[in-house]
Structure formats: C-alpha cells, structure tokens
C-alpha cells in the first residue's frame, strides 16, 4: 500500500503549491506527464494500443466481428465501447461488473469516437440489414494513477488507427474472408482533454492525489479542425460560465499537442514496420 497518505493531510500541501503555480510532481499546471503511445500491443486483437501518462497505464484492444446491424440503422456497422477497471490496476478496484465510473468512462470515450466521426459506420456495412462489422473497443485499465479519461480516449483512437479489417467477399448467402486485410479508414482524430478545477486553478492530467482533491472536472473532446464534439462535467463541484469557456480554449490547445504526438508516434511505428 504505497502512496496511501490520507487525502486531507495532502490537501494543504497540494493547494499551497498550486497557488504558486506548481504541482506535487514539479509540473506546470497545464503540462502533461511524459506520454508514450505504443501500437500493436496485443497480437490476437484486430487493432490495439497502449498509452502511458506517467504511471497511468491503459491498454485498448479492438476486435472486429461480423454481426447483425441494429434494426434502426440497417446500413451501418456497430461501434461498441466497454471499459474494464481491472483489479490489478488499483487497490480501489474490485472484481465484478463495471461500476458507474467505468460506465461513465466508456460512454464518454464512445461519445467522442462517435460524434468525432472517427469511422464512417456506413463503410462497415457488408450486406445491408443482414451483416455488418461490429467493432468492439475494449478499454483495459492496467495501472490507475490519475487521468484515466484522457489516456483511455487516446488509447482507443490509437487502437482504431492500428485496426485492420479482414477483407470479405459476399457469395450468395455466404461471407468469405479473402485472407487479406485492409486498415480501417480513420476520418477524424478527436482528442479528449480533461481539465480539473482545484482550489480555483485549472490543471490538466491530474495525478490520483490531485484527482481526489478536485472540486470537479470537465472533459472536452475536440476534433482536428478545433471544434468541440463532446463534453462531460463530472464530480460534485460547479463551474462558472467563464470557467467553461476558459477550459474549452485550453482543451483545444492541449488537444493539438496530444494529436501531434499521436501522429508522430504512429509515423514512427509505421516506418519501423516498413
């Protein structure tokens, strides 16, 4: 049980530093921890990636299955996001079905991917009304040290960028896999940036200790062109209207940084494979 200093004792120290524009790990308020993004980390998955923000470690695997479309969207494939808070990731995680935090995380990541139009679901249709690709995006939290939301969203997008779908042919009733693969067509690159409000200051990429002291947080997901595609306020505090607008501007800026990092990591990975 390391780092188990009671939150209330830490609070004074954290707030005092923040008022001077400093963090407990020496970062500036609006700096991320060192980030690393790795692709193709699970061989059996159709796409996968892992992301580390400092000691936070999240893995995402994408599995593609052929299934039946939803009756109200017969010409579209299906994108499903699920998050598992694996018990090995934190002393606070317990085995069992996803709790409300895991459900919220998965739903916010889902909203970002869907509304950010990462994939055109129409392209995932094989036989309208009958057979479509179902993409399961499974988020696996492996080490929880704060800011799961941003790490999970980034890892999910990275895993989709790395996803290859089997090429299929339709012959009568049957669907035949040709044995070839083609990469998933990625349309946009929405990035989640979570702003934490703590003692009147905004911070990005909170540590677990900071997260427990935050009044509230706002997750802002922005597209490549700098528009907002999803928002989620959580925790029990409040924002003023000015706070919200300030947060959005920071999120657009930080989103750009993370997106550039994602692109350069992906390029490095692609060239290492070539």
């Amino acid at each position: 049980m390391k780092n188990k200093i009671p939150v209330s004792i830490n609070r004074e120290h954290v707030l005092k530093l923040l008022s001077k524009g400093m963090r407990i790990d020496g970062r500036d308020l609006l700096n991320y921890r060192p980030i690393s993004i790795n692709f193709e980390v699970a061989g059996k998955a159709d796409g996968s990636a892992s992301v580390r923000f400092g000691d936070t470690y999240v893995m995402v695997g994408v599995k593609a299955e052929i299934g039946k479309p939803f009756p109200d969207t017969p010409g579209e494939g299906v994108l499903l996001v699920n998050a598992e808070f694996v018990p090995l990731a934190s002393p606070d995680f317990e085995p069992g079905p996803p709790n409300e935090d895991a459900i919220e995380l998965a739903r916010v990541v889902d909203r970002g991917l869907r509304k950010g139009e990462v994939v055109d679901l129409k392209e995932l249709c094989i036989v309208p009304g009958e057979k479509v690709w179902m993409l399961w995006v499974d988020i696996y939290i492996l080490d929880h040290n704060g800011n799961l939301m941003d790490a999970a969203a980034l890892a999910s997008l990275a895993a989709l960028m790395n996803t290859k779908l089997p090429e299929v042919k339709v012959e009568g009733e049957e669907i035949i896999k040709t044995g070839k693969f083609k990469p998933l067509n990625i349309k946009d690159y929405p990035i989640a940036v979570t702003l934490g409000k703590i003692g009147g200051s905004f911070i990005v990429d909170p540590l677990l200790d900071e997260e427990q002291l935050m009044d509230c947080r706002l997750t802002v997901i922005t597209t490549k062109s700098g528009n907002i595609c999803a928002l989620q306020k959580s925790f029990s505090g409040t924002f003023s209207q000015g706070d919200v607008l300030k947060a959005l501007n920071i999120a657009v800026e930080k989103g750009k940084e993370l997106r550039d990092l994602l692109f350069s990591s992906f390029e490095k990975f692609s060239s290492s494979k070539a």
Partner: peptide
C-alpha cells in the same frame, strides 16, 4: 454556477 454540463455532437466555439 453550472453543475451539469454534457455535450454530444460537433459545435464550433
């Protein structure tokens, strides 16, 4: 003060 804020879809600033 705002105590709930969500969004679902693309908007400009």
């Amino acid at each position: 003060l705002i105590s709930l804020l969500q969004m679902d879809g693309i908007l400009t600033m």
